[in-house]
């Protein structure tokens, strides 16, 4: 019964009797004999230890738990609420300005059709507000758990590092899409209430049906959501480097702002294609006739590259990290 014990642990057990010298590991002469007698005494051969079986939907259960935390947390809901308010404010403002007459350009476009507010709201919010909301969730994802100490219990559960990181990323990406969808829905509803419904006149002057206009909104949401998900990868990567979530969040937001500033400097045109925010506004390709899928594809490739790069950084860091919090 204790053959392994005795051979591996001469110090343990009754070995250390008074007056008896403590033995050095591996020098237990009786182990062999004991092993033989044990085998005779116990006919059933001990089965080798096996890892416990995994439940089938375990990954989705953890993702569900993660989403539950994210979408029940007051902070995250408040950010969604604030973001939902902005299109309403924009819509009402444009309605008032538009009502006074003398409007031109974009204002005329938006006030002229109920769907145009959605594109306008997206292009405005995608610059900073949406990135901030996404960054708060992504930057907090690992650092927040580390800071609170819950990370050690998740990993001891054992959640598995790669699995947990993947769940954290999917959660942040889903929140990114939720943010985008909230903007679009809020703008759409506001637009429908405040402005005339009907065929949409695009930037190029072509007119499309309202149904096709809605489809193009859907494409825009898919594209912008992917951009926000790419940003979430950066937030997640920074999040694995610290136990202070505000650090990861602030770091990512500063990165976004620096990129926006660099984009505005004409002398630096050559580097703008490498900056993530450059690609966020490419969704206006859906306002061309026909849709400029080439521009969308280019943007999606950039997002994919960012997700791959920062996902790898996050994984490399997190999989070998000492959890001492």
């Amino acid at each position: 019964m204790s053959t392994v014990d005795t051979s591996t642990s001469p110090g343990a057990g009754s070995g250390v009797r008074a007056g008896e010298a403590r033995r050095t590991p591996g020098l237990v002469p009786v182990a062999e004999t004991l092993e033989t007698t044990e085998r005779h005494a116990r006919p059933e051969t001990p089965t080798p230890p096996v890892p416990s079986a995994r439940e089938r939907w375990a990954f989705w259960r953890l993702l569900g738990s993660e989403l539950g935390l994210t979408f029940r947390r007051p902070r995250n809901l408040a950010m969604l609420a604030v973001i939902a308010c902005v299109p309403v404010i924009i819509g009402v403002t444009l309605r008032i300005v538009g009502g006074q007459g003398g409007m031109g350009g974009i204002i005329a476009d938006v006030a002229g059709n109920s769907l145009m507010l959605t594109f306008f709201a997206l292009s405005f919010l995608v610059l900073l507000m949406m990135p901030v909301a996404v960054t708060v969730v992504a930057g907090d994802s690992v650092a927040g758990e580390a800071g609170a100490g819950t990370l050690r219990y998740l990993l001891a559960a054992p959640a598995g590092r790669t699995r947990l990181l993947l769940v954290k990323y999917l959660n942040a990406a889903i929140y990114a899409y939720a943010v985008t969808a909230v903007v679009a829905l809020s703008a759409l509803l506001t637009g429908l209430v405040l402005f005339p419904a009907g065929p949409v006149t695009l930037l190029s002057g072509t007119t499309i049906t309202m149904a096709e206009g809605l489809l193009r909104i859907l494409i825009a949401v898919g594209y912008v959501g992917a951009g926000m998900a790419a940003l979430a990868a950066i937030g997640l990567a920074l999040s694995t480097f610290t136990e202070v979530s505000i650090g990861a969040i602030a770091g990512t937001i500063v990165l976004v702002i620096v990129c926006q500033v660099l984009r505005a400097i004409p002398e630096l045109d050559s580097i703008t294609p490498y900056l993530l925010p450059t690609w966020f506004t490419n969704f206006d390709a859906v306002l061309r006739a026909p849709v400029d899928f080439g521009a969308l594809r280019e943007g999606l490739v950039a997002f994919g590259a960012y997700i791959a790069l920062f996902g790898s950084i996050a994984w490399a860091r997190f999989s070998g990290k000492d959890i001492t919090s």
Binding site: M1, G15, P46
Partner: peptide, 26 residues
């Protein structure tokens, strides 16, 4: 130097260790 596990369980009337990996240290 004999049965460490038995001795260990004795005070609380412990059940013998589980079949898998029996005799192993925890």
């Amino acid at each position: 130097m004999t049965t460490v596990t038995q001795e260990a369980g004795a005070p609380f009337g412990a059940a013998p260790p589980p079949a898998d990996g029996a005799g192993e240290s925890a």
